[in-house]
Each structure stands twice: as structure tokens, then as C-alpha cells.
Design a protein around this nucleic acid. Structure first.
Lengths: 203, 203
DNA sequence: GAAGTTTATAGAACGTGTTCTATTTCCGGC
DNA sequence: GCCGGAAATAGAACACGTTCTATAAACTTC
């Protein structure tokens, strides 16, 4: 059926790209995506524009990322990894999981709110993703979950903690979406997250 | 600027449409949408196909619903209203809010899972909606919230209950999306919802 | 370093959401 | 019944995501 099977497989995390030139191309593409998204949100991330800005042919863009959604969700993963690294270098203040989770949540949320267009682009891509982007979505979900479990305790998380982290992640995303679509203010989001975390962790 | 201001305003709930002919056109459109969505999901709801099936010109379709997302989210509202009505005619069993909410959740969830394509179409539209569909989204959110608060108690809901209902709604939606994109099985969804409701209501 | 294979390029082509245009039909006030 | 404006129609036109084609450049392997 498929005689040549080495097709780079497009979706890879990027670390294991064959050549340096390819790693660079990939980086240029992600950078262009983030730049365009930051300027004009989801709609401004047009595949032709990304290709132009990354100095890459349209076909090449599609070889690296099989769709706009893949592209944006992968970029989201890259961004989240950066945030996670930064968080790892910080000592999270607070004496209880409740306080520490709130700190982490507040910090990332404010970070995202500083760049509304980018946030809009990424949350919309994330929530619009269909089954074909399952791998990328899972990657991001895991990143989010681990951010919260790390804040809850240093040890390996229990199942209950994972469950709580997932609920927080769900609520967080949904509030980001509400904020992005202007159905909620930044204050609303902060309040609702605080309330949610309280309900879940102030037992 | 806009000399003629009577443009039907497209988004209305449908009850106050001028003529009977218009109410019927609107109904035909929603029915066509639901039929197409049920058969092939989000991608099968093509505006030309909806117009054809509803025996309406493309321009008319756009006069009634300014975008595919508006169309699908409005149809979702119609469906939820039906579910709500049916629920109102049922006595919800269970001695605690916990049990009653779980009953309602389980019932609606199973209902949705019986029609995966329709569910996929509607959840994707709902989560992809941008600011311009804010009104429709709010409408659906309110419907969802009230479904859960009604299950919690017969009286007017407290703020805390509303908050809990919202969290449940967020988690519910996110799990539906995970199910629709085949990242979670029906059992996963049921388990996670059960866990969430327990965390929130088994105090 | 030549042959063969994979990857990149430029650009045309296609599908579907959305908008626009020209025309016709419908409806409320005379 | 008739007029004027709103609503509906048929269909062209446009935008952007995606796919395809033909060619060139970059690599492997001998």
C-alpha cells in the first residue's frame, strides 16, 4: 500500500527532526504562527501568511503541520512548555494546595490575558480540534494537568489529585474561552477559578 | 449609517418572527440542520445543503442565521429546550442533590451519545463560536446551568449552587468534546462526571 | 560524483463559508 | 387593486483552508 513510509510523520514534537535545517524551518513556522496570532488572533493565522512569513512554501508548511489546527495546537504546546519551565524555576508560594494552585492558575491566566489575540487563537484551535489532532490535544492536556498536580504537591500525584487537576483544567479552559469571546471579564474569570478551586480543594 | 434598521436581526429566538411563513422557514432550516448534522456531523452541515434541504435560498439562510456557528448553536438551544421540557415532565429520583444531578447528567449524556454526529456538530460549533455568537452561547449556557440547578433543588438556586452548576457544565462540555474526538470513551465520561459531581456535592 | 530518493518550491486548482448583485415575490397602507 | 419597501430567490463572486502538479534542490548510497 504505502511503499515509502518515511514521511516525517508531520506531527512529531520537533525534537527528533532529521536535520538542523528542518528544526530551523519548524521553529520559523511556529514563530511566524505565534507572531501572526499575537497580532490578529485565529483569523490572522492564515496558512499562506504563515508560509510567507516563515519563508517556506505552502506545501512545506503542510508537510510539517497537516492543518491549521495542528499548527496552532502545537504552538500552544510550545508556549505551555515555556510557561512550565519558567514555573519550574519559581518557588510557588502558599502553604496549601489550594493556595499554590491558585497562584499557578493566576499567574498563567494573567500571562495569557496579556496577549489576548494569541490566547484567542490557541483556545479556539484547541477547542475546535477534531479527532485527527488527538495526539496534540492529549499532549497539551497532559501539560496542563501536570502544571496543576505539581502545584498541589511535589510527590507523584494521586488519582484523586489527577482528577482534581483535570476538573480545574476543564474549568480553566472554559473560562478562558468565555473571556476570549468577551462573555466574561478578567475579574469574572479570576473569581470563578477561585471559587472552583475552593470547592475542590478547601475540603 | 444604517438607514433601514429592521433587518429581522437574524438571531432572535424565533418566537417573535413576524409572519407564520417566517416561523415555518426558520423551523425548516433548523430541522434541516439537525437532520444533516445527525447524518454526518459538523462537516455535513454545509450551508448550501441546509438551504437546499430547507427549500430556501442561500441568502435567506444567511438572513436568518448569520453564520454556520450561529445556526448550529441555535439548533443546539432548540434541542436543549426539548430535553429540558422532557426533564420537567419527569420526577427526578434521588434523595440528595448529588444523586439528582448525576441522574440528570447521565440521562442527557446518554441521550447525546445516542446521536454522536449531532453531538459532534453541536459541541464543535459551541466551542468554536466567537464573540459574535455571544448571545446564542449565553442562551445555551443558561439553559445548561438551569438544568443542573433545577436538579439540585426546587427553590431558586443560591449563588453557590449556580457556581457549582457552572463548573459541572464546564466539565460536562469538555468531556463531551473529549468523547466526540474519541479521546475518551463513554465510560470515561461517565466516571469523570461522577467524580466531579462527587467532589463538588458530596461535602 | 552520479543515480536515485526524499524534501522543498511555486503556483494552480478545488471546496466550502460568506458576500454580493440583479430580479422577483410578498405584504401593509392607500 | 396598486405602490413602495422589505424579504426571498438564483446564482455569480470572493476568501481562505487544503490538495495537487511539475520542477528544482538537497540528501543518501554506492
Amino acid at each position: 500500500m504505502s511503499p515509502s513510509k518515511s514521511r516525517t510523520d508531520a506531527l512529531m514534537a520537533g525534537d527528533e527532526l532529521s536535520s538542523a535545517a528542518q528544526r530551523e524551518r519548524r521553529k520559523r513556522i511556529v514563530d511566524a504562527t505565534i507572531a501572526l496570532a499575537s497580532k490578529g488572533g485565529f483569523d490572522a493565522v492564515q496558512m499562506r501568511a504563515v508560509a510567507d512569513r516563515a519563508d517556506v512554501a505552502l506545501g512545506t508548511l503542510y508537510r510539517y503541520f497537516p492543518s491549521k489546527v495542528h499548527l496552532l495546537v502545537s504552538s500552544l504546546a510550545v508556549e505551555l512548555e515555556r510557561a512550565q519551565e519558567k514555573m519550574d524555576r519559581t518557588t510557588v508560594p502558599g502553604d496549601s494546595p489550594y493556595e499554590r494552585v491558585l497562584f499557578v492558575l493566576g499567574r498563567i491566566t494573567r500571562g495569557l490575558q496579556r496577549n489576548p489575540h494569541l490566547t484567542e487563537a490557541m483556545t479556539r484551535a484547541f477547542t475546535f480540534a477534531d479527532a485527527s489532532a488527538g495526539a496534540e490535544i492529549d499532549r497539551v492536556s497532559l501539560l496542563m494537568e501536570s502544571m496543576f498536580t505539581k502545584a498541589m504537591s511535589d510527590d507523584a500525584p494521586t488519582d484523586e489529585q489527577k482528577a482534581i487537576a483535570r476538573v480545574i483544567g476543564d474549568v480553566w479552559l472554559s473560562n478562558l474561552v468565555a473571556w476570549v469571546t468577551r462573555r466574561a471579564t478578567a475579574t469574572d474569570v479570576a473569581n470563578r477559578l477561585e471559587l472552583t478551586v475552593r470547592l475542590l480543594l478547601k475540603s
